[in-house]
Design a protein around this nucleic acid. Structure first.
Lengths: 152, 152
DNA sequence: CCACAATTCCCCACTTTTTCCCACATATTC
DNA sequence: GAATATGTGGGAAAAAGTGGGGAATTGTGG
């Protein structure tokens, strides 16, 4: 019951993007099509089903307010969080401000990431992708313990 | 209940490939023909029976979201993981994006690797294979502990 | 409070992709 | 060599993706 996989999507002139059909039924059942979009440090957008988001939001709010990193995270994530719904065609309208943040142009990419979805500008995604493929295998020195033990 | 051995397979114009007959019955019994394909850093594709994949996926999701290496792995593996089923002829349709990633052309190679299968472009495979035969025996200096104790 | 502008929403129509099915070719087995 | 199983290709129906017009709503300024 997790999001996974990659989809090419088009963002039209009005800032709408069609949710892939395979996700729609699940989104309607799971949360009545109510979603929350916010931003990520890596300059992509995050899409959560509303109930999932609320869990994350309360975790964020609980963070110590005197910690600078925590405040930054709160402003970034909670500050940009926008609730929106799918229209009758299964599309969502991304607010202009969030589109700008992620540098979204016409072509975008939607990535399933477990509890959430990520939206990337296509160009940004493919560039980052190449870097990752090489960087993941190169610096094996700094891997956290959990990663070292991972068996695929 | 492990996959092993190597098969030459053809990828047709629509991106379909026939699963070797000896695997089909097992795949239907084990997971109702439900498979997950994702990518590997070595530019090949990995095919898991759905239940096997879900184990790996949950491990990945549990990794700390603030760790950069973890995020890269998540985006690479979960981000490309696509669920698919065999059709009536025992074929699977590989998404265009994954075919591109692995550089798949008409001729490919399917390799049993225990819990999973690997799909390689034939040319890439034969090239890599030669390199490995030489490189595996050369760098015995940096083996992790588990490898040092391995008795073949 | 009204008028105007901008944005959002809803609907329709078109294009592209995916899916399903059938048919044939090739290989294996008896 | 016939019969079964496997591999391969392609066509057509269905579904999904895409774009745009116009109504409705919101917001702004006079």
């Amino acid at each position: 019951m997790h999001f996974r996989g990659i989809n090419n999507i088009a963002v039209d002139a009005k800032g709408r993007m069609a949710m892939p059909a395979r996700y729609r039924e699940r989104l309607l059942e799971g949360c009545g099509g109510r979603l929350v979009v916010t931003v990520d440090r890596d300059h992509c957008l995050l899409v959560y089903p509303l109930p999932e988001w609320e869990v994350i939001e309360s975790k964020l709010i609980e963070l110590p307010s005197l910690n600078k990193q925590a405040r930054l995270l709160q402003r970034l994530l909670i500050g940009h969080a926008t609730e929106l719904e799918m229209d009758a065609q299964g599309r969502i309208l991304l607010p202009a401000m969030l589109r700008d943040f992620a540098g979204l142009k016409k072509k975008a990419v939607l990535i399933g990431q477990g509890k959430k979805l990520e939206i990337w500008d296509e160009e940004t995604w493919s560039q980052s992708q190449e870097e990752w493929v090489t960087s993941v295998q190169s610096d094996d020195g700094e891997l956290p313990a959990a990663l070292e033990e991972l068996s695929l």
